[in-house]
């Protein structure tokens, strides 16, 4: 056990020494790996943000019921009571036509135009907020509302959130494919980097085999090298994505303000960053393992 630990320690030290002895080559390799990883990582971060944005809107999925102008307050109460009893309905809110007109005048800067109207053209409305963004629930509530007397029109406001959800699902599939492709690219980059390193250490490998070194012994320093290159490349990728978010957030803030939102692109959390670094290290390790294994098959 001591011997095993000792060799791990020696291998890691030797690997660090090798990396530091060729700083330019090491930096270039790390940048190549970092850029390859930054693409899927950046896409993932954007997708997570889009999902958060969609979830925020989805929580407010609504069904709007527009009432006949002859609807009395008893009719409104009756409709409200029936809606409140329906499972999945979170909130029922009556919006009188006068309030709707005031809101319209305020939000669309149409005060002058609306002031010129002889009468209020808007109907009374009941806004039903649903629990979540369940399409089947929204459809059921809409169907029920269409059956109520004094309801002239029913509008489901959750359609676009479902479209956004479908788009996010599509994006996630695309991202998974992109992730797989770029992971393969990273493994290939590490494979080739380690292959070049093997060429420079071919004599050492041959001599080591002849004096009784096991395959594990020969693998070890290269595995450290591959893993370390992967982790360093992962750090570069995280840096690139964080920098990208900083730049993008200026424009996102401007756009969000126009919609009255405080939305900003969020970076990955500490745990996610750690998981990502482990993953990139693992890919580097795998590329290195394959490279050395292929070489060892050619040695006795």
């Amino acid at each position: 056990m001591n011997a095993w630990l000792r060799h791990h320690f020696q291998s890691s030290l030797r690997t660090l020494g090798r990396l530091l002895s060729t700083p330019v080559g090491t930096a270039l390799n790390v940048v190549v790996i970092g850029v390859a990883l930054a693409l899927p990582l950046g896409a993932y971060v954007l997708l997570v943000n889009l999902q958060t944005l969609g979830a925020g809107f989805a929580a407010q999925a609504q069904v709007s019921l527009f009432l006949d102008r002859i609807a009395a307050s008893d009719d409104v109460r009756s409709i409200e009571d029936r809606l409140r009893r329906e499972p999945g309905v979170k909130q029922v809110r009556f919006v009188p036509r006068a309030t709707a007109l005031k809101d319209l005048a305020r939000s669309a800067n149409l005060a002058e135009v609306i002031g010129a109207l002889r009468e209020n053209p808007l109907p009374d409305a009941i806004i039903v907020t649903l629990d979540g963004n369940d399409a089947a629930l929204a459809e059921r509530v809409s169907q029920m509302a269409r059956g109520f007397a004094k309801v002239t029109h029913v509008q489901t406001d959750s359609d676009w959130t479902r479209r956004l959800d479908a788009l996010i699902r599509l994006g996630r599939t695309g991202l998974a494919l992109l992730g797989v492709l770029l992971s393969l690219a990273l493994i290939a980059v590490t494979f080739n980097t380690i292959r070049l390193q093997i060429v420079t250490q071919r004599d050492e490998i041959e001599v080591s085999r002849l004096i009784g070194a096991t395959d594990s012994y020969i693998h070890r320093p290269f595995l450290y090298l591959g893993g370390l290159l992967g982790v360093l490349g992962g750090l570069v990728a995280l840096g690139l994505v964080f920098a990208g978010l900083l730049f993008m957030n200026r424009d996102v803030a401007t756009l969000a303000t126009l919609y009255g939102s405080q939305f900003r692109l969020e970076a990955l959390g500490a745990l996610d960053c750690l998981a990502f670094l482990l993953f990139s290290g693992l890919l580097g390790w795998l590329g290195s393992y394959l490279s050395v294994s292929v070489h060892l098959q050619t040695v006795d």
Partner: peptide, 29 residues
């Protein structure tokens, strides 16, 4: 094993060449 072409590692010292088989078997330094 002793070879005609020696098979020495020329990026290491004389001592490091000789100590290599002992490192391979995990001997203490």
């Amino acid at each position: 094993l002793v070879f005609q072409d020696h098979k020495l590692l020329y990026d290491r010292s004389v001592f490091d060449n000789v100590v290599l088989p002992l490192q391979v078997i995990g001997q203490s330094m």
